[in-house]
């Protein structure tokens, strides 16, 4: 997919996020918008996957685990736009009986979801287990996992990091949404931050730092991670520098939109800044 098409797709995904969260009256737009470009690149250019033959066990395909489960809106949008389920489902987010639970669930059988998430810090472990299974089974595909930077405060992340290095999981590629914001404020002010690159390196991971809103940088980072993983048999972490709420001026760069739905007026103001490229759901 060309960079221009990826940009157009991302604009539509951001519209989806705003419209879904506004309709639901709650949800997490901020992080969804900071990771929109990353997940758009992942689902439309990077991963070897096929919604038609997808199964939860991931055999014969690349797999994705969303560790930061509150990024459900962007996840649901890229899944629907990839063809995993009808676009109309997006309008049901967080409603009673919906397949689109507030945080991703596998209980209702929503196609494309490999594992539930919401309680933070657990996705690296699950992704490492999936990657280890691929290694044991001789499946050359990769496993991708996305974490928030605030989420890295969870201790289990680092248990998973150590495990993945020890078991030589060169087929595991992590992504950190390095937007610098979490619920209570900036990551630096709350209880985290520091040199994330050195932290991951200390646990034996290859690291790449990239602009998470520049598609050519994003694609380049994934290419490097794939090559490094194969070369070193070590997992790789791409630290994507992003802005929370990216794409809408009044939502960008602040923690205030981490978990808040726009009002009807704010929704219209936001949509005015995002081109409708593929048709709203």
């Amino acid at each position: 997919m060309s960079i221009q098409t990826l940009q157009k797709t991302a604009s539509q995904v951001r519209r989806d996020i705003i419209r879904m969260v506004t309709a639901a009256g709650s949800g997490h737009p901020g992080g969804s918008m900071s990771t929109t470009d990353i997940l758009t690149a992942l689902y439309f250019s990077v991963m070897d996957h096929d919604p038609k033959t997808w199964t939860r066990d991931g055999k014969g395909q690349d797999q994705f685990i969303l560790s930061a489960g509150h990024l459900a809106p962007v996840y649901y949008s890229v899944l629907a736009r990839s063809g995993y389920f009808p676009l109309a489902e997006l309008g049901t987010l967080r409603r009673m009986g919906s397949l689109l639970q507030g945080h991703p669930s596998v209980r209702r059988g929503l196609k494309g979801i490999t594992q539930a998430s919401g309680s933070l810090g657990q996705g690296v472990s699950v992704a490492a287990g999936l990657a280890l299974a691929k290694k044991l089974d001789g499946d050359p595909h990769r496993v991708y996992v996305l974490c928030g930077d605030g989420e890295l405060e969870e201790g289990q992340i680092w248990e998973g990091a150590e495990f993945a290095t020890h078991h030589k999981l060169g087929n595991l590629i992590g992504m950190t949404d390095w937007n610098g914001q979490q619920i209570d404020g900036s990551v630096e002010s709350v209880c985290g931050g520091g040199d994330l690159e050195k932290k991951w390196q200390a646990f034996g991971w290859n690291t790449i730092v990239a602009d998470g809103h520049d598609f050519s940088a994003i694609l380049d980072a994934f290419d490097k991670a794939k090559a490094l993983g194969a070369e070193t048999s070590r997992p790789s972490m791409i630290l994507f520098k992003t802005d929370m709420g990216h794409g809408v001026d009044f939502m960008a760069g602040t923690h205030k939109w981490h978990g808040k739905a726009p009002s009807a007026e704010q929704c219209q103001a936001a949509l005015a800044q995002l081109e409708e490229t593929l048709g709203d759901f």
Binding site: R56, D57, G58, K59, T114, Q115, G121, Q122, G123, V124, S125, V126, A127, A128, G129, L130, A131, L132, A133, K134, L136, D137, G155, Q156, E159, G160, E162, F163, H166
Partner: peptide, 19 residues
């Protein structure tokens, strides 16, 4: 290793993959 939380997650990944 001495990291039970990760062990549960890794086991879940292995189980999802069919182990």
């Amino acid at each position: 290793g001495i990291a039970e939380s990760n062990m549960v997650g890794a086991a879940a990944g292995l189980a999802i993959a069919g182990k």
